[in-house]
Design a binder for these strands. Structure first.
Lengths: 208, 208
DNA sequence: AAGATTTGTTTATTCGGGTGAACTGTGTTA
DNA sequence: TAACACAGTTCACCCGAATAAACAAATCTT
């Protein structure tokens, strides 16, 4: 009837494509709830999704792209989890503990995050996606931090905050000789000490 | 994983195909709520559905097939409408009037019915579809009739019943010089007189 | 170190969907 | 009767989806 109309069925096709993409993503996510990130092959995902491995490449340019998009969805989940605390009052200590726990309880997600941060030779496009979502996430956490007295409005603080927590989790994740809960408590303690340190430093700087 | 598994996406395809088919059917039905059956061209349907005319032939072998399937859906509607009256008590007179009114109020549907009954040279496959659904419909009405005292269990009666009503509607549909409501009343009267006649006849036969 | 395996990824091919243009037949007009 | 218009239908073509098989590189095995 109009001019830009691309034919009903063509438009349907596009939606259907999204559905397929989502199916592959779901297969990926259910897989990395069980296996470690590095153990998940394209053929595993393909089998789980009920398609051939080649098909996945019709929807994602590379394995990294696939996983970075899965990561993005996970980070959206964190956002939804944290967005409540924007309304509620939350101390920076509580925020710290929540964040540590999330990084600790979502192993594959954390592994993927580290993968994109650490591994060399990652496609620029993928890295851009990854960094974009990290920035977005940081802005998000920043909104929370602003409401917290003592956290300050320093735009660098949020980066330092998240980086520190990541570092703590990464460093002690596989620490030998401790149970998971012991490691969790240790991390909480370490992270909180860092936060308090940060508080003192930001007091030094002042805000004028 | 198994052997008969046709790949997730292939199965999706089949569902999606049904959706597309349904879209064409919907376009067809909304069209024949406005226009007369014979005025509806494949290109009209195509435009309404937002596709090309050739596309329709990927889903329906011919115009007749398309319309006979639309007819089937309509008849399913009647079934749903009548299935209530199986539970409730309904006299044969009430059933008669309901049926007449339906045939009268759904012009294109009635026109299509006549089309398949009257026109020569209709593809065997199409006719089989058409007759199958008519038989199905007759069984349906028969279930109602059985519960109605005086209607009898004569398997021929239902055919005669419906044929008579169709004849009445067809004959007087375009009767000149009468308003629609006048025609409706006339048809009711005529149909009821036929029914009563039938009653007497079935009384003759008795049931032992 | 030399296969053998197992990766991620690409290629070549097959299949089905969608469409514009052409074909066929049937009026209709002049 | 010739020209035309308009119906249903088919044709030839292109495009995207899905895959099996091949490929290249890394990793494991012996």
């Amino acid at each position: 009837m109009s001019d830009t109309e691309k034919s009903t069925f063509m438009k349907l096709r596009e939606d259907e494509r999204e559905v397929r993409k989502a199916l592959i993503m779901d297969a990926t996510k259910t897989l990395y709830e069980k296996k470690a990130f590095h153990e998940i092959g394209m053929r595993d995902i393909a089998k789980k999704a009920g398609v051939s491995a080649a098909t996945i490449y019709r929807y994602f340019p590379s394995r990294d792209d696939l996983f970075v998009e899965a990561l993005i969805q996970d980070i959206n989940n964190i956002e939804m989890l944290l967005s409540k605390s924007i309304e509620e009052k939350m101390t920076i200590e509580e925020l710290t503990i929540v964040t540590i726990d999330y990084l600790l309880d979502n192993e594959s997600m954390f592994q993927m995050m580290c993968h994109f941060m650490v591994k060399g030779g990652i496609n620029t496009r993928v890295l851009n996606k990854f960094n974009a979502v990290l920035l977005h996430f940081n802005e998000m956490v920043n909104k929370i931090l602003i409401k917290i007295p003592g956290a300050g409005e320093d735009p660098f603080f949020i980066h330092a905050f998240f980086a520190s927590l990541s570092g703590v989790v990464m460093t002690f994740r596989n620490f030998p000789g401790l149970t998971l809960e012991d490691k969790r408590k240790l991390m909480h303690k370490l992270a909180l000490s860092i936060i308090n340190q940060g508080d003192k430093l930001s007091t030094f700087k002042g805000n004028d």
